[in-house]
Design a protein around this nucleic acid. Structure first.
Lengths: 223, 223
DNA sequence: AATATATAATAGTATTACTATTAAATAAAA
DNA sequence: TTTTATTTAATAGTAATACTATTATATATT
């Protein structure tokens, strides 16, 4: 399962120059993932990234117009990857219960280290999604950016799973709300378990987050 | 119900000089709430605040060591206020179901404009909680700040309601997780309904957020 | 070989968050 | 009242940040 990057295609609206089109571009994406996990998004700068990859700050601006744009790119890459895994896992599954279950697991389970893609470390990327992704859409520019399609991959994933919920219970009134609650909630709980344990009930190594949200969804959509 | 500020007391760890101790301090808090709602937390600066209240940037640093510290102060004020309302509403209510229901309403209902406190606009403060509060604890310094008690008011409110859940179902394993999911979730859904409607099912003016989370909690804690 | 184009580096700018130092106002003590 | 102490505020900075205009270099095309 190596170099399947052909499956992940990112809309040209999300970069100035396609980072997959050059070695430098790939280095930018690859190293930025490592640096954002290490430093946090606030302390991460294009200057530091440039030094680290032996390139210049301004060269990075050829690929992304701002560090915010780079974060948005990473988030869309992540959701494309999740969508791919979701479609793959649910291929030929007729039972909507099974398909929903796969989705919940994908949203709530920790991401394992692997080398599916050459220049993207999904394990670290998942950490970024957990700790930094809210910063991408809690901005004053959210409306214009939403119009430009900055959040469409995430929205598409939510839509897919909402459809599955409606297959199970066509009368359920809040499928999108339930799914976005689960996704955002699972990220929060992972973060809380590490940094603000008083806000959660997770013990190290347990899979209570998966258990909690699986249960929550099952009970919520009961007719 | 005017000037009950005697009920809201903020830990001295959360400011350098108590803003309630002087006119300038009150102006700082009052105006910062207005400016953060208008500009967003990123574009808000002490410089701009200074100009707006006819004072100097450096004078504001006497009260708060950074704009981050000011945000943390506001968040703690908000949760003290919520806690006060919670205790007040649940006074002499013996039924844990009723008490839980009051809490869920307090967490999910929109905050109305009123003049309960002289220099704090709770309506705007609630907007800040919805749009900016995640920025306070998604920081690299979260662990040291947590030790300093920066998030204790929020944690105390979650603890209170978790206790109520355990009164209803002592075997329920995830009370903190459920409550923090509801609180964070409700904030997300309010924000989504305005800016990213594809992630929710809320129609303008409806109270579906209250309905959704009330239902969610009820079904979740069933024995 | 000449021209065009893609790519990267230099050297900047305005702004930001924050601070060290000085000045002025106020209160307390002699 | 005068002196001393203390609280409060303003001046004038700093280092760092996010970003850009311009120039240089490499590569490809004619």
């Amino acid at each position: 399962m190596k170099n399947l990057s052909v499956n992940i295609s990112i809309s040209p609206d999300l970069y100035s120059k396609n980072p997959e089109s050059s070695d430098l571009g790939k280095k930018i994406v690859c190293r930025s993932i490592e640096m954002i996990t290490d430093l946090g998004f606030e302390a991460f700068t294009f200057k530091k990234l440039g030094v680290s990859i032996g390139s210049n700050e301004s060269s990075i601006y050829r690929y992304f117009e701002s560090k915010h744009a780079l974060l948005v790119y990473l988030i869309n890459w992540y959701w494309s990857w999740i969508e791919y895994k979701l479609v793959f896992a649910n291929n030929n599954l007729s039972s909507p219960h099974d398909r929903l279950n796969n989705a919940i697991h994908l949203f709530t389970e920790p991401v394992e280290k692997d080398d599916e893609y050459l220049f993207i470390n999904e394990f670290l990327l998942n950490k970024i999604i957990i700790s930094e992704s809210v910063k991408a859409y809690y901005t004053k520019d959210v409306d214009t950016e939403n119009e430009k399609g900055f959040y469409k991959t995430y929205k598409r994933v939510v839509q897919r799973v909402s459809d599955t919920i409606l297959e199970i219970n066509p009368g359920f009134k809040f499928p999108h709300m339930l799914i976005s609650t689960v996704i955002e909630g699972a990220h929060h709980q992972r973060y809380f378990s590490k940094h603000l344990p008083a806000l959660t009930d997770v013990e190290e190594g347990e899979n209570s987050i998966v258990q909690f949200y699986t249960d929550l969804v099952r009970k919520s959509i009961l007719k």
